[in-house]
Amino acid sequence: MTAREGVVADQLTLMLLSLLIRVLPALAVASALLGERAQHEHENPLYNNTERKHDVQKIKEHAEDLFMRLMNEQHGSSPAGSSDYLERKRRFLESVRRQKHLNARARSSGANDTAFYGINQFSDLSPQEFRAIFLRSFTSDNIPVFPVNVYNNAKPAPLPKRFDWRDMNAVTPVKDQQSCGSCWAFSVVEAIESAYAIQSHSLEELSVQQVIDCSEKNLGCNGGSPTTALRWLNQTKVKLVRNSEYNYKAMTGMCHYFAPTDFGVSVKGFEAYNFRGYEEEMMSKLVELGPLVVLVDAISWQDYLGGIIQHHCSSGESNHAVLITGFDKSGDVPYWIVRNSWSASWGINGYAYVKIGGNVCGIADAVAATYL
C-alpha cells in the first residue's frame, strides 16, 4: 500500500467510525443520560449547574460501556486484542479525560450557563485527527477593521434583547459536512440562502458542492477561505443552483456548468471586517444584512454538548467557518447563536452558543455578510 492509499484508507476508517457512532444504540444511552434537548432556543433554558454535573458524571461512568457497544456493533464481537481496538479505546478514554478537564472550569465557577463537554460522534478521534479532518478553514486576506466611527454617525436602530433569523424562516436546516473540510463552503452558501430568503423569496437549499468544485483559489475538501469564495462569486456572478441539481458528495469533484436560463442565485456584493472590540456593531450588522459568516478557533468544539462557550479557545487561531444566525442578550451571559455544519446531532441541535464580548474563540476577527 502506498502512502497516499494509506491516508485514504485511514480517512475511510474514520468516516466509518464517525458514522457508526452517530447511529449506534450507544448514543441513545448518552442521549437519555443528557436528557432531551429543546428543539428551539425559545424552549431551551440552559441546564442548571447541578443537573449538568450529574449528567456528565453519569456519562463518564458509562464511557467504557459506550465504547464496548461501539466495537461490538462494528465487529460483531469485541476483538480486545486487536491493535485498532486498543488504539480506538485509548483515544476514546483520552476524550473522556479531556472532557473532564474542560468541565472543571464550569464546576469551579458555579455558573449555570458555562459550556459543558462530553461524549459525542467525535469521541473516537484524537485532537490531531479531528483538526485534520474538520478544521480546514483559513483567512487568506487582511480583513480591515470595521469603521465604527462612520457607522455610529449613521445612528443605527436600538437592538432587541433577542434576535434570530430562524424566527423569520430565513435559515435552512443544519447539514453535515462529513469527512470533508468544506466548512468554508457551507458557511458561504448558508449565508446566501438566508440572504435570498430575506429578500422575500422562498427559502432554497443551494449547492455547497458547486462551491467546493468550482471556487477558484480554494482547495475543496482540503480547506478554503470564505472571503475568497465570496470574492469569486462576486467577480464571476456564478449562479448557485439548487442542491437537488448539484448535490453534496463530501469530496472534491469536477466543476459542473449550467445554462444561463437555469435557476440560480448570484452575489452582488459582500462586506468583510474585523469586528474585534465592536461586537455591539456586529449585532447591528447581523440584523441589517442577515446571518454572518465567521471564522473561529473550534479545537475544543470537538467535545461540545451545550451551554455558552466562554473559555478553551483562542482569538487569532481561526480554523473553522460557521454562520451566526442570531444573538440573545436576555440572560446573565449574552451569546451568539452559531450554526455549525457537523449535523444536527452535534451541540444544541447542530448549533453552539458563544459568549458575546471579549472576542471569544476569535469570533469577531473575520466577519463577512453578503447581499444579492
Results as ranks from 00 to 15, higher is better:
Ser126Arg: 14
Pro173Trp: 07
Val174Ala: 05
Thr139Phe: 05
Arg166Met: 04
Ala106Ile: 07
Asp141Thr: 15
Arg136Ala: 09
Arg107Leu: 14
Ser108Pro: 00
Ala170Thr: 04
Lys161Phe: 12
Pro127Ile: 01
Ser140Ala: 15
Trp184Lys: 04
Phe122Cys: 09
Gln128Phe: 04
Ala106Glu: 04
Ile133Thr: 12
Pro147Tyr: 04
Ala111Leu: 12
Asn112Ile: 05
Lys155Leu: 13
Leu125Met: 13
Gly118Asn: 02
Arg131Ala: 10
Ile143Ala: 09
Ile133Phe: 07
Gly110Arg: 08
Leu135Cys: 09
Ser179Pro: 01
Asn169Phe: 01
Ala132Gln: 11
Ser126Phe: 13
Ala191Glu: 03
Pro144Thr: 04
Pro127Arg: 05
Arg166Ala: 07
Ser108Ala: 15
Asn120Trp: 02
Gln177Lys: 03
Phe138Asp: 05
Leu159Phe: 06
Ala157Gln: 09
Thr172Val: 13
Pro144Gly: 08
Phe134Lys: 03
Ala111Glu: 14
Asp124Trp: 14
Val171Arg: 01
Lys155Cys: 10
Ala115Glu: 04
Glu190Arg: 12
Ser123Gln: 01
Gln121Asn: 14
Val148Cys: 08
Phe186Leu: 05
Gln177Asn: 05
Val188Ile: 05
Ser182Asp: 08
Thr172Leu: 09
Asp124Leu: 15
Ile119Gly: 02
Ala157Asn: 08
Pro147Gly: 08
Lys155Met: 13
Gly181Asp: 04
Ser182Trp: 06
Ile143Thr: 14
Tyr117Ser: 03
Phe138Pro: 00
Tyr117His: 08
Asn142Phe: 12
Asp141Cys: 12
Gln121Pro: 11
Phe146Asn: 06
Gly118Glu: 00
Asn112Asp: 11
Tyr117Cys: 05
Leu135Tyr: 01
Asn152Glu: 12
Pro156Glu: 10
Arg107Asp: 15
Pro144Ser: 09
Trp165Cys: 06
Asn153His: 13
Asp141His: 15
Ile133Asp: 02
Thr139Lys: 09
Glu129Trp: 00
Ala157Leu: 11
Val145Lys: 10
Pro156Thr: 08
Arg166Pro: 02
Ala191Trp: 07
Asp176Thr: 03
Asp124Ala: 15
Gln128Trp: 06
Phe116Gln: 02
Val150Ala: 15
Ser123Leu: 06
Pro127Asp: 03
Pro144Arg: 08
Thr172Ser: 10
Lys175Val: 04
Ile133Gly: 06
Thr139Val: 11
Asp141Phe: 15
Trp184Phe: 11
Ala106Gln: 07
Val150Tyr: 13
Thr139Glu: 13
Leu125Ser: 05
Val145Cys: 07
Val171Leu: 09
Asp141Pro: 03
Gly110Phe: 09
Gly118His: 02
Phe146Ser: 05
Arg162Tyr: 11
Gln177Ile: 01
Ala106Asn: 04
Asp124Arg: 14
Val150Phe: 13
Ala111Phe: 11
Gln177Glu: 00
Arg136Gly: 10
Asn112Gln: 02
Cys180Lys: 02
Pro147Lys: 03
Val174Phe: 00
Pro127Asn: 07
Ser108Asn: 10
Ile133Asn: 08
Asp167Cys: 07
Ile143Tyr: 06
Arg162Ala: 11
Phe130Asp: 02
Asp176Lys: 04
Pro158Tyr: 09
Cys183Met: 09
Arg107Cys: 11
Glu190Val: 10
Asp176Phe: 00
Phe122Pro: 06
Val150Glu: 15
Arg166His: 03
Tyr117Gly: 02
Val189Ala: 03
Ala154Cys: 14
Leu135Met: 10
Arg136Asn: 13
Ser126Tyr: 12
Asn153Asp: 12
Gly181Gln: 01
Tyr151Ser: 08
Asp124Phe: 15
Phe116Ser: 02
Ser179Asn: 12
Arg131Gly: 01
